[in-house]
Design a protein around this nucleic acid. Structure first.
Lengths: 353, 353
DNA sequence: GCAGATTTCCAAAGCGCTTTAAATTTTTCT
DNA sequence: AGAAAAATTTAAAGCGCTTTGGAAATCTGC
């Protein structure tokens, strides 16, 4: 059933029916009700392509997520992010179109996306420190919101970000207060902006306490379980091993925990661990008592926030670049404790596997 | 730059330009080259909405994933699945539109999707055993492929599935061959079809060996780390605890491992664990030597396969329902070993937190 | 009861593309 | 060379909707 049929069935013009359905004022109340009833009865849904062509808006939002050919991996955080974003889209009648793009092919892609015209705005995922996409999108004149920021970009643009720096600064400070001074950082890839900021926070907190950062205690990589395991394993085997770990994701923390246990140590007593917790639905950090002490910030909430922001920008193009900085909370779990006394032979391996 | 402008710039009709660009034969070779050059030069990209309106095809595929209001969680498997599917879409010039839908609101949604007309086909995720969506979609006449199957549905439809039953049957048999008879199953929600099938396989293998299934050794739930931990913790505290676990996901297996370690036992010696491994990019199962013995099947490959299948169905609507059953391989890791001798006091807790 | 204001409706153009049917040009064959 | 056939191009209709510019109907107030 299309508009024409519906209109002729009602003995009305397409104009009137269209107006009635879209809430325009210049239509008789009785007529409107008649139209609405008929639309319901025949299950009429306007064709989105035609509507889009006529209105110039596509009622959908593009999410572009980068994947390099090397690390073809969709960040696990992504699922929760779009869960949040979707809420906003559903409420506003928007669709979500997803595009994966290989590093480097982005310029062409974005231009294409705009010219194809099937999205009204874009959410940019996983910005790197120096991200060419931002300048490009500004040029293209397509509304966009970045999930995260790009440190090395001076131009103003809209973003939603978690305060990575303060979160990790606080976590590090917390560890130093517990007496730790050998604190390891197992970070995400540091050309990613969020990871860079976390490192900054970590370094700042160390500096405050006059602790010299030790390159041997800093790792970065794709945030897998393996990264955590391998990093921790190697670091714990060092002559002067860390007594605490700061990790960038729950999955990595789990790897760290494994290495700690394999070394015959106990997490929370011999070695402390703090992780960032995105509150992913399938990876909740314990129940009542968190498993890991963590900096916590819901990525789902971030998704919701970014989507709302973008929709607002689309509705009012002049509302200017918007920003939203979400603060993480530091929650206490069982994975942290005071630094072991200096003399204690805490790194003796107990030959467990 | 739109077609009209491009055409007038070339002193050609829109028809010719359109044909040249879309590879129709009835256009002079020289003309075609001239057109193509101009299109490149001016960065011409046809407007997708207009094209869709004219052709009746939208060149995009819908992925609909269910979320109940209770468990608002996007299956972590999803990220990898679409990574695979995207490859196919990119190659074929299709877009991917994503819709989350609450349980129960699906009928309206699917009808809407069809009438709105902005997808040419649908991938159905997470089918339950008795899934009304399948009948509905068949009615609607929209091509679709199910990732998984719905056991209680007799009608024929297209699907891509991993052989859950045989995978778990084989894994269970493997454990019995190692001498285990107290084998626990920590499954996904069993109204989900894949989980049901896994249970069937598990039960079948037990039956072959004449082992009575023990309800106390069977759990189901959302496949989180917590589920694994809690289930294993409780089971290991039972009078006659399991000596082996079969889990439905890596994340759950990690929870099981945690419980095993907390009970002072060693995985692979005191207690064996086999998990299903979807080969998720961020949760690789070890490197050279797998961490867990596992039934392994790449969900990313499944995504690719499903997408290819759907595209084929769209290209040729009469190619009939297609099916693809992917077999999992059983890979050996460090988490399995012979069942401990009967008398051994293997469940003595060593009070480790 | 009627001019003017208001309300309600409609015909038609247009969004940017494809495609049918027909016109024009070029080639082929005798 | 000239008619028939083939190759190339075009004008115009149509996809399903919104929206502009009017027209028709109804309502005012005197």
């Amino acid at each position: 059933m299309n508009l024409k049929e519906l209109a002729s069935h009602l003995n009305l013009s397409q104009t009137t029916v269209s107006r009635a359905l879209n809430g325009y004022p210049e239509v008789n109340k009785a007529t409107r009700q008649r139209v609405e009833a008929a639309a319901r009865e025949f299950n009429y849904t306007p064709n989105a392509r035609a509507k889009g062509l006529a209105t110039g808006r596509s009622m959908s939002i593009g999410h572009v997520i980068p994947t390099s050919s090397k690390r073809e991996m969709v960040n696990p955080v992504f699922g929760d992010f779009i869960t949040g974003a979707s809420e906003a889209y559903v409420e506003a009648g928007y669709d979500l179109v997803l595009t994966l793009v290989e590093d480097g092919k982005e310029e062409r892609l974005y231009r294409n996306i705009r010219d194809k015209g099937n999205v009204d705005g874009i959410i940019v995922h996983s910005p790197r420190m120096q991200d060419s996409r931002i300048a490009l999108l500004s040029d293209l004149g397509l509304p966009f919101v970045v999930h995260g920021r790009a440190s090395n970009i001076t131009a103003d643009y809209s973003w939603v970000d978690m305060n990575n720096r303060s979160a990790f600064e606080r976590a590090t400070a917390f560890l130093t207060e517990l007496g730790h001074s050998r604190i390891a950082l197992v970070n995400g890839l540091e050309f990613m902006d969020f990871a860079f900021r976390r490192r900054e926070g970590y370094l700042a907190a160390l500096a405050v306490r006059g602790i010299d950062p030790d390159p041997a205690l800093m790792r970065q990589g794709e945030m897998t379980e393996l990264l955590g395991h391998q990093s921790a394993q190697e670091m714990l085997a060092q002559p002067d091993p860390p007594t605490a770990f700061l990790t960038s994701s729950m999955v990595t923390a789990i790897g760290v925990r494994r290495a700690i246990q394999e070394a015959g140590l106990e997490m929370g007593r011999d070695v402390s661990v703090i992780t960032h917790d995105d509150e992913l639905a399938y990876l909740m950090n314990g129940q009542n008592v968190p498993l890991f002490t963590a900096t916590r910030s819901s990525v789902r909430a971030a998704g919701r926030c970014a989507a709302d922001m973008l929709l607002r920008m689309i509705a009012d193009p002049d509302c200017g670049p918007l920003h939203s900085l979400l603060e993480a909370e530091l929650i206490l779990g069982n994975s942290t404790g005071p630094a072991p006394a200096a003399g204690e032979p805490k790194t003796v391996r107990q030959g467990q596997t």
